[in-house]
Design a binder for these strands. Structure first.
Lengths: 153, 153
DNA sequence: CCTGCTTTGACTATTTTTGACTAAAAAGTG
DNA sequence: CACTTTTTAGTCAAAAATAGTCAAAGCAGG
């Protein structure tokens, strides 16, 4: 059963699909009204599901006529190489999954590869303690991305 | 006399049979209520009877709207399941590569997948110290094999 | 009475939802 | 224009809703 956060995200995805541009503008308070929730809930959805890791950028403006603009980033060359840098020295589970989702969405990896990568950064690390876990996860992600790059020649 | 664990397992088997999908979603707390036991009892049943070695995979999510998804794997994946056992609790680099080679030979994975897996058990672990390295490698291998099973529908 | 599977519960981890407070931009006023 | 008010959006921490972990206690068969 979907959560409110998912309903809101779905709604935004739909708006983006229907839009002719690569972005949509919404009013935070309108969404809150439409979904009968606190406005900060919208902010929550945006920050957990529409960050750069998922291939989006969010811009906004306050005051009268304020808005939130959700922009879907275009695919670029060197995409994987960029992600390599995004991973950095340490990365959390959620962010790693978003990067994998992005690779999958762009058809740079297959569904099965995505599943394997998700398993690596999830179950595969479940027994590793927290301080080092995120750095190890980053190392594994980089190793996988490097393997991808090698396999893409 | 069947144990509580058996009853719960039976119940899940039945749900799976009745489902049109190859999986069912349940709420851990609902099951605990239904069977009048501690929620962790459900976790116990899942981990003892619904692991990849028995032909199942379990996914879950915490927090609001959380759930547990029990997925029944197709029967014809006996081979991968056996490898899952071969991996065991700990495995060396050489052995891991042999298993990956075997998967590749049998065309159960692509060249790119093999490259990725090799990167994981090699470069990905280069910074991990030796005592734990082989157990971690085993865990990663098992996670990857489980993902493979999941992706083979 | 040992050994291993089962059951429980206290503690932990993760995700979502809400609300009080803060910050910024536009609109109104003198 | 300078100042105030109104309209938006952001932040952050607490509460709620789930699931996981682990060790200890319970129990059943050999």
């Amino acid at each position: 059963m979907p959560t409110l956060a998912e309903y809101i995200a779905q709604y935004i995805y739909r708006l983006l699909e229907q839009s002719e541009r690569d972005y949509v503008d919404v009013r935070r308070s309108d969404l809150a009204l439409k979904f009968n929730c606190a406005p900060s809930q919208v902010t929550y959805v945006l920050s957990t599901r529409f960050g750069p890791h998922s291939g989006f950028v969010v811009e906004s403006r306050r005051g009268g006529g304020g808005y939130v603009r959700i922009i879907k980033l275009p695919v670029e060359d060197e995409f994987v190489r960029r992600l390599y840098h995004v991973v950095g020295d340490a990365i959390g589970h959620r962010e790693a999954l978003q990067i994998i989702g992005r690779l999958s969405e762009e058809s740079l990896i297959t569904g099965r590869e995505a599943g394997m990568m998700a398993a690596i950064v999830g179950d595969g690390l479940s027994k590793v303690e927290l301080p080092g876990r995120n750095t190890l996860r980053a190392q594994l992600m980089r190793a996988m991305l490097a393997a991808l790059l090698r396999g893409m020649e």
